[in-house]
Amino acid sequence: MKEYMMVFLGPDYGEDGMGLSAEQIQQRMGKWFAWHEKMEKQGIVKGGEALHAHGKRISGPDRIVTDGPSAASKELIGGYYVITAESMEEAMKVAEDFPDYDLGSTVEVREVMKFEGM
């Protein structure tokens, strides 16, 4: 069994991002909850967290500090899950249920590198 990380990219839900209303947030909550429940039942969830917007980036030899992508950026990482799956195809099947495609958000699926026997 391999492990895959699903990284969620898209603007923040808040007023400085997509500006979702109370009603829409409630809908999102229902959808995310249903997805999580489904994955839990399959027993494939290894972990996952949601992330705050407004992070910092540190880069280069001079450790230049800049603001992370804005809350409205499509490149903002909003959270991740690590799941177990047989193959990339199977992991992608799991990712099909990601609730925020209709908002234009993206899932990046990456296999976790294992260092067995090292």
Binding site: Y13, G14, I25, R28, W32, F33, V45, A50, G79
Partner: peptide, 9 residues
Amino acid sequence: KKAVLYFRN
């Protein structure tokens, strides 16, 4: 907003 993130897991 926090509620929706919290109930993800």
